[in-house]
Design a protein around this nucleic acid. Structure first.
Length: 489
RNA sequence: GGUCCCAUCGUCUAACGGUUAGGACAGCAGGUUUUCAUCCUGUAAAUCGGAGUUCGACUCUCCGUGGGAUCACCA
C-alpha cells in the first residue's frame, strides 16, 4: 500500500445566498489539488450562524458547484447537525485549562474596546473572567448568566509553514482570546472548523488569504487538543479594479451571474484557474481535466489578482468557436427562449441542416451566448420591420436609389437557375451582377445584406443566401423593395 | 492604530543570480473582407525607491514607500 497518507481537501462555504467567484476559485483549487494527487475532495457547509440563515442557499450552492463539475467525494456535511460534538470539545478544553468561560456583558466589552481604542491599543479581551474563582463561576452558572467560551491563547511565538507563502510567524501576545462557543451555545467558525477538519481527516486546508491572521488560533487549537495540524495554503485574493477585496458593490461576483450573462462554465473555470496560477508554459486553454493534470500549489501566485473580465470575453469566444454546431445550438437555446419575440414554431420550421448552417455563420461573432439571439433574429423572424436609414451608407457609397437598383438586379439574378447549395455559385452570380452594373462590391452587397437582415452587422451576403435558401432570401428582397418603394412614394 | 501578507507592461503573468525582461488580453497601426466578427502581420507598454551581498541582481538581505487582509458572541 501507499505509505504516503492520502490527500484530502475540503471546500467549506457558509451558505449566505450565492457562490462568490472567489469561493468558486477556492473550491476549484481545492478540487484540483485533491484530484491531481489522487486524493479526496470534501464538501462541508458551515452553517453555525443562526442569524445568517438564508432560505435555499444550500441548494443553490450545491447546484452551482455541480454545474461547474466540481464534484465532491464526501459530504455535504452540515455543521449545524454536529453542534454536540463542538460543545463536547469545548468542555474538554475548559477542563484542561486551555479555554475558559467568559460572562462579560456586551456593554462591558464595548466599553473595554472603546477605552483601548482611545489609548491606541489593539482591541483585545482583557481576560477579566479568567480571574474568576471556581465558586464565582459556579454561582454565575447557577444564576443562569449567559456566557461564552474563550480560547486561552498562549503567550508564545508561533511559526508555521504556508504552502504558498512559506514561513509565517505570529506572537500570542498579539492574538485575542477567541470565542469558541457563543452564548447561544453554537460554536464559532474557529472551533467548528478545527474540530471538523481534524475529525474528517483533512490534510490540506486551502482557503483565502483573509484567513491567514486567524491561522495561529487554529494551530493553537490543534495543539490544545493534542492533534497534528494540517498543511495550510492561503490563496491570494481576487480584487476589484481599485485593488480592494472583490465585492458585490463593483460588479457581478456571483458565479451564477456569469452563466446568466452567457459565459460558458468551461471558460469561467479556465479563466478563474489562471487568476493566481499558471502552468509555466505559454498554453492557456485548459479543460478541467487538463487543469487537474497540470495543477500544483507551488505555481500559485502570492499577490492578489484583479478580476478583470476582458480576458474572460476573449476566452469565452475561443470556447464558443470550438463548439460543435449541435452543442452551440443547445447552449444558445435558453437565451433564445428568454426573448419576447421567440416562439418554438420559428425554430421548428427550420431543418437541422439549416440550423447548423445558421449557427456556423454566427459562431465567430459571439463573445457570449447571450449575444446569440440578436444575431439569430434575422434568420428566425418571418417579417422584418425595416430600418430604411440602414440601406444608405456613406462609406459604402450607396444611397436609397442605389439600394433599389442593387436589390432589383440581385433579385433577378437569384431568380435564374443557380446552385443554392454552393456559396461559390451564389457568389459567382452576384459578382456578375456587380460587374454588369459597373459598381463596387459594397454598393451592391451592403444594401442586399441589409435587405436580408435589417441589421448593421451580420454574416456576409453569400453566406446569408446559402443559409436562408432561395425562397426565403427572395421573400426578404421583395419585402425590402416594397418597404423602400412605399417610403419613397 | 496593532499584527500579518504582498509588490514585473493598463490587466493576467513568464523569467527559481547571467535573456535584447518572454507570452496572452486589452490598445494602436496595417493586411484579408460587402458590414461586423474571425484570421494574419506589425507596434507601443513593466522589474516601486534606496542601500547592501555578488564578477553579475526581477531574482538574495535590510530599510523605506505603496497596496491589501485582519483585529465580532460573521464566516
Amino acid at each position: 500500500m501507499d505509505t504516503k497518507t492520502s490527500i484530502k481537501t475540503r471546500f467549506a462555504p457558509s451558505p449566505t445566498g450565492y457562490l462568490h467567484v472567489g469561493g468558486l476559485r477556492t473550491a476549484l483549487y481545492s478540487y484540483l489539488y485533491a484530484k491531481k494527487n489522487g486524493g479526496t475532495f470534501l464538501l462541508r457547509i458551515e452553517d453555525t450562524d443562526q442569524k445568517r440563515y438564508v432560505e435555499g442557499a444550500v441548494e443553490s450552492l450545491i447546484d452551482i458547484l455541480k454545474l461547474f463539475g466540481l464534484n465532491w467525494d464526501e459530504g455535504p456535511f452540515f455543521q449545524s447537525q454536529r453542534t454536540e460534538i463542538y460543545r463536547a470539545h469545548a468542555a474538554r478544553l475548559i477542563e484542561s485549562g486551555q479555554a475558559y468561560r467568559c460572562f462579560c456583558s456586551e456593554e462591558r466589552l464595548t466599553k473595554m474596546r472603546e477605552d483601548q481604542s482611545n489609548l491606541h491599543l489593539p482591541p483585545k479581551y482583557d481576560r477579566h473572567c479568567l480571574e474568576l474563582s471556581k465558586e464565582e463561576i459556579d454561582k454565575l452558572i447557577a444564576a443562569g448568566t449567559p456566557f461564552v467560551v474563550r480560547q486561552l491563547i498562549p503567550t508564545e511565538e508561533i511559526v508555521f509553514n504556508d504552502l504558498i507563502r512559506g514561513e509565517v510567524r505570529f506572537h500570542g501576545k498579539d492574538v485575542d482570546d477567541q470565542v469558541l462557543i457563543k452564548s447561544d451555545n453554537f460554536p464559532t467558525y474557529h472551533l467548528a472548523n478545527v474540530v471538523d477538519d481534524h475529525e474528517m481527516g483533512i490534510t490540506h486546508v486551502i482557503r483565502g488569504e483573509e484567513w491567514l491572521p486567524s491561522t495561529p488560533k487554529h494551530i493553537w487549537l490543534y495543539k490544545a487538543f493534542g492533534w497534528t495540524p494540517p498543511e495550510f495554503a492561503h490563496l491570494p485574493l481576487l480584487l476589484n479594479p481599485d485593488h480592494s477585496k472583490l465585492s458585490k458593490r463593483q460588479g457581478d461576483v456571483a458565479a451564477e451571474d456569469f452563466i446568466k450573462k452567457g459565459y460558458l462554465k468551461e471558460a469561467m473555470l479556465n479563466f478563474i484557474a489562471f487568476l493566481g496560477w499558471n502552468p509555466g508554459t505559454e498554453e492557456e486553454i485548459f479543460s478541467l481535466e487538463e487543469l487537474v493534470d497540470r495543477f500544483s500549489l507551488d505555481r500559485v501566485q502570492k499577490g492578489g489578482a484583479i478580476f478583470n473580465l476582458e480576458k474572460l470575453d476573449w476566452l469565452n469566444g475561443q470556447y464558443i468557436r470550438k463548439m460543435t454546431p449541435k452543442d452551440l445550438g443547445e447552449a444558445v437555446l435558453p437565451y433564445l427562449q428568454k426573448e419576447s419575440w421567440y416562439t418554438d414554431a420559428l425554430l421548428s420550421r427550420l431543418s437541422d441542416d439549416q440550423k447548423t448552417r445558421i449557427l456556423v455563420s454566427i459562431q465567430s461573432r459571439l463573445k457570449t451566448l447571450a449575444e446569440a439571439p440578436a444575431l439569430l433574429r434575422p434568420f428566425l423572424l418571418e417579417n422584418l420591420d425595416y430600418n430604411l436609414a440602414l440601406f444608405s451608407n456613406e462609406k459604402m457609397k450607396v444611397d436609397r436609389a442605389g439600394a433599389i437598383l442593387a436589390i432589383e438586379n440581385v433579385t433577378k439574378a437569384l431568380e435564374t437557375p443557380i446552385d443554392f447549395n454552393s456559396e461559390e455559385s451564389i457568389k459567382a452570380a452576384l459578382v456578375s451582377v456587380i460587374e454588369k452594373l459597373g459598381l463596387k462590391n459594397g454598393q451592391v452587397l451592403w444594401p442586399v445584406r441589409v435587405a436580408l437582415t435589417n441589421e448593421e452587422f451580420s454574416p456576409g451576403v453569400f453566406e446569408l443566401i446559402l443559409v436562408m435558401g432561395k425562397d426565403f432570401a427572395l421573400t426578404r428582397l421583395h419585402a425590402a423593395r416594397k418597404a423602400l418603394d412605399s417610403a419613397q412614394g
